[in-house]
Amino acid sequence: MNGAVESISIFEQWWQNIQPGIQANTLNFWENLYKEIYMNIIQGDRWLQYLKGLGVTLEVSFFAILVGLALGTILAILRLPQVQGISCKGKGFWANLGAIVVRALSKFAGFYINLMRGTPLLLQVLIINFGIFGTVRIDKVIIGVIACGLNSAAYVAEIVRGGIMSVEKGQTEAGRSLGLSSLRTMIYIILPQAAKSALPSMCNEFISLIKETSILSYIALTELTKAGDYIRSRTFSAFTPYIVSGLLYLSVVLTLTWLIGKLERRLRNSDH
């Protein structure tokens, strides 16, 4: 009652109880399990580090998805057959020049997609960090967003292109015959329908992206995998921190899957 006696939690109590067993190396299975849980989650409020790592993973993933969607959609449009072969013959110098630029961009988009899909994300991350941003001191989160976003864009481009191609040609014709420009037809008529048919593949891509951000631990960004690595380097547990990180990834992915499933049902109800 003199204040020196602090009330200790039940977790601390159990930890004290298994101390003799740790010294003598005589823990049974359940005691060992508790030792792992205590050391890797409870001790030193380590669970907070997983949550912080999770926060970074979500932050990077969210913005990388936005970058990937925006850039990927542009790449997809550049790769459409009617854009690849665009011609403005006889429409004047500027229109011709524009067509030449668009055709060049289309070629570049194809090259870019092959390059990004043909090399490992890890290499891209390392090159962007140690090469392109080799002497620029910016937040690693930004580097992560750029690297993962640029990579994802290549995959998104192919998904969106597939989605656009799956929309019947008659839809474009109907839009154009009303007098809508090709851009407006794309925005108001084709893309909304393409998005719907691309949604399942897109969901897959988002899931991959979230998990692939784990590669950013290589550039010392403390995201969820790195948080597990860090705790493991402090507690020397063989795999417990990875299981905690893994469960957190799983919960994020399952939540995302559920949300997209809901969105898909809503889209289905609204038309077909």
Partner: peptide, 17 residues
């Protein structure tokens, strides 16, 4: 900033990061 290798850490220092 924890890297997989010391070399990477030194390279980040070279780049003044």
């Amino acid at each position: 900033a924890q890297y997989k290798t010391f070399l990477n850490a030194v390279m980040e220092l070279q780049g003044n990061k």
